[in-house]
Design a protein around this nucleic acid. Structure first.
Lengths: 155, 155
DNA sequence: ACCCTTAATGAGAATGGTTCTGATTACTGA
DNA sequence: TCAGTAATCAGAACCATTCTCATTAAGGGT
C-alpha cells in the first residue's frame, strides 16, 4: 500500500509501478476529452489491441479518481463516467447528454448555498452532489444517437 | 392501458386497482418518515406479516415515484431511497447519512444557478441533480451504526 | 351475485455495473 | 541477478433492479 511515493502531484502519472496496462490506461484517458464509462474505456483499449483486463481498468480508474487525477460523474443510471481532470480543485460538471462532452464549472454559489442550507437545518459534515446535464450546442442540431441518460426530467 | 382514470390527483391512492399488497405498501410508506430503500420496505412488509413480492414493491414504488406521490434520492452507491412526498413541487433533499431522515429544501438559488450556468455554456434542456448529505443533530452524539453513504467526501 | 376482461402479482431468472478471489506475472530496489 | 510484492487476469460473486410469464383477482357490466 502506501509507502513513500507522491509528493507534489504534477505528473498525472506519478506513484506506483508503471505497468504496460497502466500506461495504456493513462494513454487512453489522455486521448479522451469526454466522459467515458469504465466499460467504454476497456472496450477502447481492446480495440487498440491492448490486452487489459476489465478489473484492471476499474482498479486503475478508482485509484486515479482517488488521487484526483481523473474526474468522475455518476449518470442517473448509477454508472460512473471518467475523464482526465483539468484542475484538482473541487468543482462540478455540465455534461452533454448526447456526446458526453463536459465543462468543468465551479460554483461558489452552490458551495455556499449547500453549506449554509445544511447548517440551517442543524446538519454537520455537509457534502453535496451536484451535476448539471444538458444538450450542448453541437449536438442540438444533429439527429439523436444513443442518448446517455443524465437524470430524469426532474430532480 | 390508459383509458379514463386519473383526473385531479388529490388522494395519494387514486387510480388503478387497489390490491391487498398495494394497500400494504401505501401503509408502510405512510408510516415512515425517513427515506428507505425498496429492499428495506420489502423487509418491513414481511415483518408485518404481509406477503408481498419484491418485484411488486419495486413496481409500486416506481409508480408512486412517477405520479409524484413519493420522493426518491439516490445514495452514492446507486441505491434508491423512497419516502412519502410532502409537496409535489420540485425540490431537493438534505439527507442524514446515519438515520436517513431528510429535510425537503427548495433552492431558488440553485435552480437559478443551474439554469444560467448551463445556458452560459450554450447548453439546452438543463436538468440538475442536487442532493445534500450530512449528519443530523440527533445522530451527531450517538455512536455510529450502519452509516449510509451519501457521497464521497468530494463531488 | 356472477362473469369476464385485464391489471397486478409472484417466484425466479436475467441484467449490468462493479467488486472480489486466488493464482500468476513482472516491476523495481538492492 | 534476485527476491519481495504490487499488479494483473479471468471469471466468479455481488447486488440492486428489471423482466418473464403463468396465475390470481379487482371491479365494471349485466
Amino acid at each position: 500500500m502506501g509507502s513513500s511515493d507522491v509528493r507534489e502531484g504534477e505528473e498525472v502519472t506519478a506513484v506506483a509501478r508503471m505497468t504496460r496496462q497502466r500506461a495504456a490506461l493513462l494513454d487512453a484517458i489522455d486521448d479522451q476529452e469526454e466522459f467515458r464509462s469504465a466499460q467504454e474505456i476497456h472496450r477502447e483499449l481492446q480495440q487498440r489491441g491492448e490486452k487489459v483486463g476489465l478489473a484492471t481498468v476499474y482498479r486503475g480508474l478508482q485509484r486515479l479518481a482517488g488521487t484526483g487525477d481523473v474526474d468522475t460523474v455518476k449518470t442517473g443510471e448509477g454508472e460512473n463516467l471518467y475523464r482526465r481532470c483539468a484542475t484538482r480543485e473541487h468543482h462540478h460538471h455540465l455534461v452533454c447528454r448526447v456526446c458526453g462532452r463536459a465543462e468543468e464549472i465551479d460554483g461558489p454559489t452552490v458551495e455556499e448555498w449547500a453549506r449554509t442550507t445544511g447548517e440551517a437545518y442543524g446538519f454537520a459534515d455537509i457534502t453535496h452532489e451536484v451535476e448539471l446535464f444538458g444538450t450542448c450546442a453541437a449536438c442540438r442540431g444533429s439527429a439523436s444517437v444513443s442518448v446517455r441518460q443524465g437524470s430524469s426530467p426532474d430532480s
